[in-house]
């Protein structure tokens, strides 16, 4: 197990390095020029452009810029922001650093609990009206785009009823709507998967055996069926987490939450490349870490995986 974990962690570092190279290369191909963006209508003053280019080090050969980029990652400053005068990227993003992971983790926890409950509920009542109702709600939840749902919920709960604030961050009541929006799609997804896996498990022989020996329904479901449903479900959590992270871009912008997603959007529009690149890297790190955790948990739960891996190498 330890060997497996170590190999995965080493692999992760490789992934991160590739991400660093890719973000650097991608920025070189983006149309538009950060210096021109800074000057906007006044661009055309060649001397001023040249001065700014030199100040930000953009006049140096690409490989020198890349080495500099690596050095800035290593010293934790991530370079200077283009938009904020004399401010290192680390300072620009510090405020949002914990907000987005917090939002994502809270949302995924709620989504897993809610999704599994709904899925089990629907599965054990297969083809009843309750099952149909749950499926209908789930399909609706997946189908309505998050920005439309957000506008609707804000209109009802904030403007009409006045129960919740429209936007902002810092108080618990300000978290409710954004988390709700983030929770809906993964809940629906998890519930559908749970229902499918559960139905499959319920048709297995050992369930019939459990029932035959007179176990109560509740025990059959939660002790025998659910556990075996959770294992395949776990692998999908990593994928869902990726979707959640991208959902934060929209939700943070609409609800005015100063997290990394909103900062990413702002930095893209302002051509603040160092900030954009850093946020892309951070999202890569979050995503790969969650996947690592999922894989390790999976390996811990299911010995076939880690043994298979060890035998294979």
């Amino acid at each position: 197990m330890l060997g497996y974990a170590l190999r995965r962690i080493v692999g992760l570092i490789g992934v991160w390095f590739v991400a660093i190279v890719l973000t650097f290369v991608a920025v070189q191909f983006v149309p538009g020029d950060p210096i021109v963006a800074m000057l906007s209508d006044q661009s055309g003053d060649r001397a001023l452009e040249a001065r700014l280019r030199a100040e930000y080090g953009l006049d140096r050969p690409l490989w020198v810029q890349f080495v500099d980029y690596l050095r800035n990652i290593a010293n934790g400053s991530f370079g200077l922001s283009f938009r904020y005068a004399q401010t290192p990227v680390s300072e620009v993003i510090a405020g949002g650093l914990l907000i987005t992971p917090l939002l994502a983790l809270v949302s995924i926890s709620i989504a897993v609990m809610l999704g599994v409950l709904l899925g089990v509920f629907a599965a054990v009542r297969q083809n009843s009206w309750a099952d149909t109702a749950v499926i209908l709600v789930l399909v609706t939840g997946i189908s309505i785009p998050n920005f439309a749902m957000a506008a609707f919920l804000v209109y009802v709960f904030a403007i009409q009823l006045g129960w919740l604030p429209v936007a902002g961050w810092g108080r618990l009541d300000q978290m409710l709507l954004p988390v709700a929006i983030l929770v809906i799609p993964p809940t629906a997804y998890i519930a559908r998967l749970t229902r499918t896996y559960m139905l499959e498990v319920l048709s297995r022989d050992y369930i019939r055996t459990a029932r035959a020996k007179g176990l109560r329904q509740r025990l059959v479901i939660y002790r025998h069926a659910l556990r075996n449903t959770l294992v395949p479900l776990l692998t999908t959590v990593g994928i869902i987490f990726g979707g959640l992270l991208s959902g934060t871009f929209v939700v943070e912008t609409i609800f005015n939450i100063p997290g990394l997603g909103r900062m990413a959007i702002e930095s893209i529009f302002a051509r603040d490349y160092p900030v954009t690149m850093t946020i892309v890297l951070l999202f890569t790190v979050f995503y790969s870490l969650i996947n690592l955790i999922v894989d390790l948990a999976y390996a811990a739960l299911d010995p076939r995986i880690r043994l298979g891996q060890e035998r294979g190498t």
Partner: peptide
């Protein structure tokens, strides 16, 4: 000065008295 990147959100906040 509250930082509100989307124009629609700002108007909604105004409507809600924020």
């Amino acid at each position: 000065f509250v930082i509100v990147p989307t124009g629609d959100t700002a108007v909604s906040m105004y409507e809600a008295g924020e």
